[in-house]
């Protein structure tokens, strides 16, 4: 049995890669909320679609199933690199090749104590004032993840640019960027749940666009803009 993003679950047919990467998420005791089970047919279909070998196909399919269960429970995944610093999570998202992991790496270099929570698909779950980001066994090809959940301080969409700048997005513009970076092929009912979660995300968590070079100045600029954000009710 395993626990990630606050969800206790069983696993069947998820393959060796899953078992290795899920080791740090293993728990004993408790009742699983659901089981991530990959059948032979599903693994074969995933193999045909992805071109990966059998074991990695099972790993990929198991992730799809886990994140599907997450959507049903009011959570979602965001394709992003999540950096932890001082007990809070900073998420860097964007299209493939935009420099998410590169920017996350710059934070690790610039800020002592920073580490990567999940380098590819952090799970986002609702908490009292916003969202928590969690490491999961599905964290990209380099398998960088920690079994922790931290409040999301901000989300920045990275774009390559000759000069560094950061700007806050309106909730609407944030939603338009977030939707393509989460799960796409789900049923209408699941999609409605997912969009409600996106609605809550963009109205509780500040979202930015970070135009940047791959340098430490960009990391310092992003950090100073994102860490100072405070929600005040007067």
């Amino acid at each position: 049995m395993y626990k990630a993003a606050g969800l206790v679950f069983g696993a069947e047919g998820c393959g060796e890669t899953f078992l290795a990467r899920a080791e740090k998420y293993r728990v004993t005791g408790g009742v699983p909320e659901f089981t991530v089970a990959v059948t032979d047919e599903e693994a074969a279909a995933c193999m045909r679609a992805s071109g990966l070998n059998g074991d990695l196909s099972r790993y990929l399919a198991s992730g799809t199933k886990f994140y599907f269960e997450l959507i049903k429970r009011g959570g979602m995944l965001l394709h992003s690199s999540a950096v932890a610093l001082n007990g809070e999570a900073y998420l860097f998202s964007g299209d493939p090749g935009a420099g998410k992991s590169t920017h996350a790496g710059l934070w690790l270099k610039c800020f002592p104590g920073a580490y990567v929570l999940n380098d590819d698909k952090p799970a986002l779950t609702r908490c009292e004032n916003g969202f928590l980001a969690s490491g999961t066994p599905w964290s990209g090809k380099n398998d960088i993840s920690r079994n922790e959940s931290l409040p999301v301080k901000g989300i920045a969409f990275i774009e390559k640019a000759p000069e560094n700048s950061i700007e806050r997005l309106s909730p609407k513009d944030a939603a338009v960027r977030i939707i393509p970076q989460t799960v796409r092929r789900i049923s209408s009912a699941r999609m409605e749940e997912l969009l409600d979660t996106v609605d809550r995300l963009v109205t509780t968590v500040p979202v930015y666009v970070l135009k940047c070079r791959p340098d430490e100045d960009a990391a310092r600029l992003a950090h100073s803009a994102m860490k100072s954000y405070q929600e005040k009710t007067i």
């Binding site: 309106s170 909730p171 609407k172 944030a174 939603a175 338009v176 939707i179 393509p180 796409r184 092929r185 789900i186 049923s187 209408s188 699941r190 999609m191 409605e192 969009l195 409600d196 996106v198 609605d199 963009v202 109205t203």
Partner: peptide, 25 residues
């Protein structure tokens, strides 16, 4: 297609198999 209000906007996204034919929002 799923139509939903998200953050003061009305957004339409494809669901299920439609997401394969219509990639976008």
């Amino acid at each position: 297609f799923v139509l939903r209000r998200v953050a003061d906007a009305t957004i339409v996204v494809p669901a299920g198999k439609t997401a394969l034919d219509f990639n976008g929002m």
